[in-house]
Design a binder for these strands. Structure first.
Lengths: 237, 237
DNA sequence: CGACAAGTTGACGCACGTCAAGGCCGGTGG
DNA sequence: CCACCGGCCTTGACGTGCGTCAACTTGTCG
């Protein structure tokens, strides 16, 4: 049951015994429709997942309906770690496209830590990287203008997608709509639309069939004054 | 060299061999003045620290000087993990008061993972908790109004301080000024001041000698529509 | 005494939010 | 075949929360 993701250059190579354990640790695969909820705020999921295919997003809701998207999840990302460690999810995860998840039994996480320190290190690595992304996101929402924020977000997502696909240039298709962008940036839908139109008029992006096409990620990064991701190869559980 | 922090009820108990390793892992103690920088963006620090005493904050800067405070660090928090795992700090840490740090050699982290899975688990736990705090912070900046944001921040910091002190009520002294609040909330200094005055006029907080006194953390939490921290006892490295 | 850090307040402008309407498109049902 | 609908994007008009500029206060330190 070898994982097709492992072949990608973005991921680090594993030792045979590590691979054997991960296979063994794996419970099964789950397919989600676009719009389906992978994990819900408040639940104590028995599972931990690695995204194999598709896009999703993590978000929080307030009682009165205000929604904040915290980050996006792409293939190779680990989700549900919070509930595994802290007992309960404090955010939800929803699929943006059809999504395939690889599920693990969270009760066997101590086993992983006991027998495979290299993999345990990788779990921490992934958590730390998520933290780093959140830091940049916080800077963006707190201190960037609307145009800068939108530019940053799209450059960020395009870069992540490019790293995965291995094609650092060329247009990227991001399966989100403007409501997602608004809820990520902390802006209203109307103002988000006006902001995105500015980027579209410069031909940095385009909207088509309800998805965003990023045609010039570098220009967006420059506009946002964003340095880019310090990408090295990464682990995959 | 037993740590005075360990005696506090907020932290979990350790096994003797774990304690022995942590002692052994420990390189020394560092004292920082108020305003001193513990870690700098861009550097690859050879150290990992646990805060023993005092307050600090993590922040990022943009080239043009805009500053965003990401989170605050209190006793028991681990700092410098990013640089240990990902190679380089993407944020800085500055002391808000005199601060004592316990330093560890980051090159020995693999050793910790290899021989003490329980401690490795704890490191991940701390990273995951940090992520959870950032999530709430992001919701706050993205979706809460100025008054709600300020209320949330002060309730949050007061709660953390109370958990550490073991005194869940009573006034809390938070060693920050209004510029820190502004840079945390993503607001201007002037508007932050006006917002804080509203909270002060309701006697939820007071400013004195350049520090904030929180007198009614629960009222602040209610105002911010914040559910509070899901605090259990926590590990300490 | 001046210099500086930190809080406070008023006046004014702008970036953003809100309300409202309309267009485009694919899906569904008569 | 058209009628209707819902999801999504778009645009105009107008209001407001917050930013900016500027000045004053108070306390502390030299």
């Amino acid at each position: 049951m070898s994982c097709p993701l492992r072949l990608k250059p973005a991921f680090r190579n594993f030792e045979p015994d590590e691979l054997a354990f991960v296979d063994h640790f794996k419970k099964g695969e789950i397919t989600l429709e676009r719009g389906a909820t992978a994990l819900s705020e408040g639940e104590a999921s028995p599972n931990l997942y690695t995204v194999l295919r598709g896009w999703g997003f993590r978000y929080k809701l307030m009682e009165d309906g205000r929604r904040q998207i915290l980050n996006y999840v792409l293939p190779g990302d680990l989700i549900g770690l919070q509930s595994s460690l802290l007992g309960e999810m404090e955010h939800s995860v929803e699929a943006l496209s059809e999504m395939v998840l690889c599920s693990f039994d969270r009760h066997r996480l101590p086993e992983l830590y006991r027998d495979f320190p290299g993999l345990a290190f990788d779990v921490t690595w992934l958590a730390s990287r998520e933290e780093q992304m959140l830091d940049e996101n916080l800077l963006s929402i707190g201190r960037r203008s609307a145009v800068e924020r939108a530019s940053y977000l799209l450059a960020f997502l395009a870069t992540r997608a490019q790293t995965l696909s291995g094609d650092p240039d060329g247009p990227v298709r991001i399966p989100i709509n403007q409501q997602h962008v608004a809820d990520t940036l902390g802006l209203s839908l109307v103002h988000t639309n006006r902001t995105l139109r500015k980027l579209a008029s410069k031909d940095f992006i385009a909207w088509k069939d309800g998805v965003c096409i990023v045609t010039d990620a570098q220009a967006l990064a420059r506009l946002a004054r964003w340095r880019g991701l310090g990408e090295t190869t990464r682990p995959l559980i």
